[in-house]
């Protein structure tokens, strides 16, 4: 019986002895010594610039000296294994981390040259200019119309009902949802399907005319067809906005983004044009991750 069992493992897995496994594990889970980010983190005419950004949760450092630019009219994808800090970093860009009391951000994050962590900065207009779409579709338990109209209403963007109607319509058209919901704008947004809900959240974000849209794994709760629809939408939105997307699916990053950044344990390992990262990565860890050796 013993022989049979070992023969089975022979067929299923390559022989790996424990020492090699431990070594491999240590290599992948240690902070790389060479801290210099491989590739080109900076672009011409950036919309947002991040310089030496550190993020701490209490004593624990979650992000370590990250410098990267977000370019206009392009999609920056952030990939990396779970817990590598990509979502944390994304939330620094519109100060959503402020809600976590133990969180501390150091370094400089600028939107159009203005430090958003500066003392005179108010987060309310900042979040209107840097919109966010979350992992799980989170429409308000209100009507479809009110979901989209909420942002313009609180920011006082419209003078009368007609303007508001127009903003709601254009936002829903941009989010590719108008045709599906135009006859039931008064029905609750929570009654839509998951993919529709996520597009409603995108419409809600673009209704306040942001300049940058942050997306935190926007398709992880959606089925493949809804995912394809949202990806199409991202490609369309790129014409008007700067987009930063965090994703677990490497294929998605390669499909929707122009630039890709690879994070590993709080470090930004490599940034570059998406096709380069996926075809000819410059760092061993990036290569290991995109070839599926871990993740």
């Amino acid at each position: 019986m013993e022989i049979a069992a070992s023969r089975m493992t022979d067929q299923a897995f390559p022989i790996m002895n424990a020492d090699i496994l431990a070594e491999e594990h240590a290599r992948l889970h240690a902070r790389p010594v060479d801290r210099k980010t491989v590739g080109s983190p900076f672009v011409k005419n950036p919309r947002m610039t991040c310089r030496n950004v550190d993020v701490f949760y209490g004593e624990k450092q979650a992000i370590n000296k990250v410098s990267i630019d977000v370019g206009q009219n392009q999609v920056l994808a952030m990939i990396g294994p779970s817990g590598c800090g990509k979502s944390t970093f994304l939330r620094c860009l519109n100060r959503m981390n402020d809600t976590v009391s133990s969180c501390r951000v150091e370094g400089k994050v600028c939107l159009d040259g203005i430090d958003i962590y500066g003392p005179a900065i108010d987060v309310v207009p900042l979040r209107a200019r840097v919109g966010m779409v979350f992992q799980k579709p989170n429409p308000f338990p209100k009507s479809i119309y009110d979901n989209v109209a909420y942002g313009p209403r609180i920011h006082g963007l419209t003078r009368d009902k007609n303007e508001l109607d127009e903003i709601v319509q254009t936002s829903l058209v941009k989010a590719g949802l108008w045709e599906e919901v135009k006859d039931r704008l008064r029905e609750p947004g929570t009654g839509l399907s998951g993919g529709q809900q996520q597009r409603l959240c995108i419409a809600r974000a673009i209704a306040v005319s942001p300049e940058v849209i942050l997306m935190d794994e926007p398709c992880s709760a959606l089925d493949p067809i809804a995912t394809a629809r949202v990806e199409e939408l991202i490609a369309e939105l790129r014409a008007q906005y700067a987009i930063v997307i965090v994703t677990h699916a490497m294929q998605q990053a390669s499909r929707v983004s122009q630039r890709t950044a690879y994070f590993h344990l709080g470090d930004l390992i490599e940034v570059g044009p998406t096709e380069k990262i996926f075809t000819n990565p410059g760092h061993k860890l990036t290569e290991d991750y995109i070839t599926g050796r871990f993740g």
């Binding site: 959503m96 979040r127 209107a128 979350f134 989170n138 308000f140 909420y150 609180i154 809600r204």
Partner: peptide
């Protein structure tokens, strides 16, 4: 659910607006 607070904060509602418009009704 925290997702409702995040949604409101994410489009630039102030803390009090988040509470009175979304959290309190729920």
């Amino acid at each position: 659910p925290p997702s409702i607070r995040e949604a409101a904060l994410g489009i630039g509602a102030s803390k009090m607006q988040t509470i009175t418009h979304h959290v309190l009704p729920l």
